[in-house]
């Protein structure tokens, strides 16, 4: 294809997206669109399955049967969401095994928030409330993103996730209304998860590299800073209801802006975790690698069995 022809196809393609039409897997798409989507969607999928680990850490220790089934169901949903997202990514011509390989080799990223440890039960509440809360803000706009399979996966994910944040907030509420020890546990969790949650929206707009392109392709509807502000504005009143305090001395309502002002984010910490030096980066990745490698003989067995069975069927028919 000549350069002119490609330019022409690109123009048609961009116009289609601008008209809010969806792109489907077999449609022509610029190579960059494909690559960007593989990167973002698989990163999203990886985040779901690595995200199972910090919460899974408390399944065996959940304090009541009701909490245990809710947590199991939530962590299971995350596996489901990872599965939907991997499947959507596979429509772009890359296999789940290849995507795993990218995760396991460290080439692919996942959300840094999951590199923090869950050290008390209140962390399960804080993750549901804050981390899922932030995730929902990031994810809802993706339900109308330009790539059809991604948008459809996100519709399902968002629908299923609606219970996750409520589950987390209910845990926090129970702790906040509990004994002084429980309330302290809740406050401690908020203290530790607040700043990493704010970092989930990514670097500030002036530092962010992909924003313009992502806006055009509807991978993003608002900038990092706008989303972060939205999260803070909606979360502060929720913290007030809990009677917990946000660990930011600079946090103050700004009448003029109609938003909360907040203190500086520690971006050194953000980059440290992104670059693989967070408290749990190594463990999380190793756990995924172990599960995959220890599962290899199981997957092989199922495949060998399926082949034998298919052969037998052919023989019987013959």
């Amino acid at each position: 294809m000549s350069e002119k022809e490609i330019k022409n196809l690109e123009a048609i393609f961009e116009a289609k997206i601008a008209r809010d039409e969806k792109i489907e897997p077999k449609d022509w798409m610029p190579e960059k669109y494909r690559k960007t989507h593989i990167r973002q969607m698989s990163q999203h999928a990886h985040s779901e399955i690595v995200g199972m680990l910090p919460e899974g850490n408390w399944i065996t220790r959940a304090p009541s049967l009701r909490r245990k089934v809710a947590l199991l169901a939530k962590v299971q949903d995350e596996a489901g969401h990872g599965l939907y997202l991997y499947s959507a990514t596979e429509t772009l011509g890359i296999s789940r095994e290849e995507l795993y390989e990218q995760l396991h080799s460290g080439k692919a990223k996942y959300s840094s928030i999951f590199n923090y440890p869950t050290i008390t039960w209140a962390d399960i509440g804080a993750i549901g409330w804050l981390v899922d809360g932030a995730a929902i803000i990031n994810q809802v706009p993706l339900c109308s993103t330009s790539f059809g399979p991604y948008a459809r996966a996100m519709v399902r994910v968002c629908k299923e996730e609606s219970f996750h944040q409520r589950q987390g907030y209910e845990i926090m509420l129970t702790l906040a209304n509990g004994t002084p020890e429980q309330k302290e546990m809740a406050q401690d969790a908020l203290n530790r998860w607040w700043w990493p949650s704010l970092m989930m929206f990514g670097p500030t707009d002036d530092m962010s590299t992909h924003t313009e392109q992502s806006m055009k392709w509807k991978l993003k509807r608002k900038t990092n800073d706008e989303l972060r502000q939205q999260f803070i504005d909606q979360t502060v009143p929720q913290a007030n209801i809990l009677g917990l305090s946000i660990p930011d001395p600079d946090l103050k309502w700004n009448e003029e802006r109609g938003h909360y002002d907040f203190g500086p984010i520690n971006w050194d910490e953000f980059w440290q975790v992104v670059k693989g030096h967070g408290p749990c980066n190594k463990e999380r990745l190793q756990t995924r690698v172990d599960a995959w490698e220890e599962g290899e003989w199981v997957r092989d067995a199922a495949m060998a069995y399926a082949e034998k069975k298919a052969e037998r069927k052919v023989k019987q028919a013959g």
Binding site: L83, Y84, S87, E90, R96, R152, A153, R156, R299, A302, M303, Y305, A306, K309, A310
Partner: peptide, 11 residues
């Protein structure tokens, strides 16, 4: 509804 991986039809 979506897709998934499995070794055979029953699975």
């Amino acid at each position: 509804f979506g897709s998934l991986h499995a070794a055979d039809a029953e699975m």
